Amino acid sequence: MTEYKLVVVGAGGVGKSALTIQLIQNHFVDEYDPTIEDSYRKQVVIDGETCLLDILDTAGQEEYSAMRDQYMRTGEGFLCVFAINNTKSFEDIHHYREQIKRVKDSEDVPMVLVGNKCDLPSRTVDTKQAQDLARSYGIPFIETSAKTRQGVDDAFYTLVREIRKHKEKMSKDGKKKKKKSKTKCVIM
């Protein structure tokens, strides 16, 4: 069974824990209790493949930012979460993405942009803004509501699919490099 290491990042209060708990335990946590770091595991079937999701729910508070490099190193894919009623959390996505790329030393890291709290009427981040940002990053965008469960499975499952595509691409690139290195030079 394939294991996928997913990391949920975003500013404090955007609903990272609520999304994760909704996926794992099928219930909505409405009281806000700032996370330092929590880890969850769940076995699911995605596109006919049974897999184990190892999900790291991270601290959004700035005082825990020193811990970010460590979990970013171990993560295979990242859910970059903002709240649709919090423009600052949307603007912060850029910083999370840049930090992930720096730590992973790669421009090509599996990510999904997630606009959470889409059940709320007080939207300050337009869907088109988020779609445009995701398009500019070359990553999928999904709106979710941890409260109603809308888009929750889709967000995590899409990230797994992005990781699969990335692994497939990397193995193809690896095979191309191996083929090239088999060419021999004969000096007579």
Rank of each mutant, 00 (worst) to 15 (best):
N26R: 09
L6E: 00
Q25E: 15
E49L: 04
G12T: 10
Y4K: 14
Y64L: 08
T2A: 14
V8R: 01
Q22G: 11
L23I: 08
L53N: 08
Q22H: 10
R41G: 13
D57T: 02
I21E: 15
E37W: 01
V9G: 06
E62Q: 08
Q22L: 04
S39M: 09
E3H: 12
Y40R: 03
F28W: 11
V9C: 14
L56W: 05
D30M: 09
S17H: 00
K42V: 09
D38W: 02
S17Y: 00
K5S: 08
L6K: 00
V9P: 01
D54H: 07
V45H: 12
K16P: 00
E31N: 10
T50Y: 09
Q43K: 14
V7N: 07
I55H: 07
L56P: 02
Q43F: 07
Q61S: 14
L23T: 15
Y40G: 01
T58I: 02
I21C: 15
Y4D: 12
T35L: 00
G15P: 01
V8D: 02
Y32A: 06
Q25S: 13
K16R: 03
D38V: 03
A59D: 02
I21N: 15
V45C: 14
S39A: 15
Y64N: 01
L52F: 13
I55T: 13
H27E: 15
G15R: 00
D54L: 04
F28C: 06
A11N: 07
C51Q: 11
D57P: 01
F28Q: 04
K16L: 01
Y64E: 02
G15W: 00
K42G: 08
R41Q: 12
V7Q: 04
K5D: 08
Y64D: 02
L19K: 14
V7H: 07
V7D: 03
L6T: 06
D54M: 04
Y64W: 07
P34L: 05
Q61R: 06
K42Y: 08
G13V: 11
V14S: 12
T50S: 10
L19Y: 07
S39K: 05
A18C: 10
L6W: 04
V7T: 12
K16Y: 00
Q61D: 15
P34Q: 05
Y32N: 05
K5C: 05
S39Q: 06
D54F: 03
S39C: 15
G48T: 09
T20N: 11
K5A: 05
G10F: 02
V29L: 13
L56H: 03
L19T: 14
H27F: 12
V8L: 09
I21Q: 15
I46C: 10
G13S: 13
Q43M: 09
G15I: 00
L19R: 00
K42Q: 15
I21D: 15
A11W: 07
E63I: 04
V14C: 10
H27S: 14
G48M: 06
G12H: 07
E62V: 07
I36G: 04
L6P: 05
S17G: 03
K16A: 07
Q43R: 14
H27K: 10
G48S: 09
T50I: 12
V29N: 12
G48V: 06
E49W: 05
S39I: 05
Q61A: 14
K5N: 13
Q43N: 14
E31L: 12
Y64A: 02
L19G: 15
D30V: 10
G60K: 01
I55V: 12
F28N: 03
H27V: 10
V44S: 13
A18G: 13
I55N: 07
P34D: 05
R41Y: 11
T58C: 05
I24G: 10
Y32I: 05
D33P: 00
Q61P: 07
E3V: 09
Y40L: 04
C51S: 10
T2Y: 09
G48F: 05
Y4L: 14
S39R: 08
E49A: 09
